Simulated assay, not measured.
Amino acid sequence: MYIHSQKVEGLLVDAQTRCRHYSSDKDVIAIKFPCCDTYFPCFMCHHSYADHAPTVWKREQFHTKAILCGVCGFELTIRQYFDCDSKCPKCQSGFNPGCQNHYHLYFET
């Protein structure tokens, strides 16, 4: 599915990047995986669709745009995402703060 001109793979349930695994009001981001340069709503969607094991973003790559706001289409760098206080810096839509519990699945910690 294309969301704001970005292709997002996975078990999507709507056009704001919510998926079958995470579909609350605030589950409105997709994360680009460095192993395949593809956006997915979550690590479980990557597992369902990709034919390879995921890799995480290294600290020296945190300047890379790898987070997509499903509400407005703004692409955040990983550093911007860490520093945004769970809100899109462009449209102010709230992101799920519980995603922090899964950072180790996406980012070098």
Results as ranks from 00 to 15, higher is better:
Met1Glu: 03
Tyr2Met: 13
Tyr2Glu: 13
Tyr2Gln: 14
His4Arg: 08
Ser5Ala: 12
Ser5Ile: 05
Lys7Gly: 09
Val8Thr: 04
Glu9Leu: 11
Glu9His: 02
Gly10Val: 14
Asp14Cys: 08
Ala15Val: 01
Ala15Asn: 15
Ala15Ser: 14
Gln16Met: 12
Thr17Asp: 00
Thr17Gln: 00
Thr17Tyr: 01
Thr17His: 08
Arg18Phe: 09
Cys19Ala: 03
His21Trp: 03
Tyr22Trp: 14
Ser24Leu: 08
Ser24Arg: 08
Asp25Gln: 09
Val28Glu: 05
Val28Gln: 00
Ala30Leu: 04
Ile31Tyr: 02
Lys32Phe: 02
Phe33Cys: 06
Pro34Leu: 02
Cys35Pro: 02
Cys36His: 09
Asp37Val: 06
Thr38Tyr: 08
Thr38Arg: 09
Thr38Pro: 05
Thr38Ile: 01
Tyr39Gln: 05
Tyr39Val: 03
Phe40His: 13
Cys42Leu: 09
Cys42Ile: 10
Met44Tyr: 14
Met44Trp: 14
Cys45Phe: 03
His47Pro: 00
Ser48Asp: 15
Ser48Gly: 08
Tyr49Gln: 10
Ala50Asp: 10
Ala50Gln: 13
Ala50Cys: 15
Ala50Tyr: 14
Asp51Glu: 10
Asp51Lys: 11
His52Arg: 10
Pro54Lys: 06
Thr55Asn: 07
Val56Ala: 04
Val56Asp: 00
Trp57Pro: 02
Trp57Cys: 07
Lys58Leu: 14
Arg59Pro: 00
Thr64Pro: 01
Lys65Ala: 10
Ala66Gln: 06
Ala66Pro: 01
Ala66Phe: 10
Ile67Leu: 12
Cys69Asn: 11
Gly70Glu: 05
Gly70Ser: 09
Val71Thr: 11
Cys72Tyr: 04
Gly73Asp: 06
Glu75Phe: 00
Leu76Met: 15
Thr77Met: 10
Ile78Pro: 00
Ile78Leu: 12
Gln80Trp: 07
Gln80Ala: 14
Phe82Val: 13
Asp83Trp: 05
Asp83Pro: 00
Cys84His: 03
Cys84Glu: 09
Ser86Asp: 15
Lys87Pro: 00
Cys88Ser: 11
Cys88His: 11
Pro89Asn: 12
Lys90His: 15
Lys90Leu: 13
Lys90Tyr: 12
Lys90Asn: 14
Cys91Pro: 08
Cys91Met: 11
Gln92Pro: 00
Gln92Ser: 13
Ser93Ala: 15
Phe95Thr: 15
Asn96Gln: 15
Pro97Leu: 08
Gly98His: 12
Cys99Trp: 13
Gln100Lys: 11
Gln100Cys: 05
Gln100Arg: 13
His102Asn: 06
His104Lys: 09
His104Cys: 09
Tyr106Lys: 01
Phe107Tyr: 13
Thr109His: 06
Thr109Ile: 13
Thr109Asn: 07
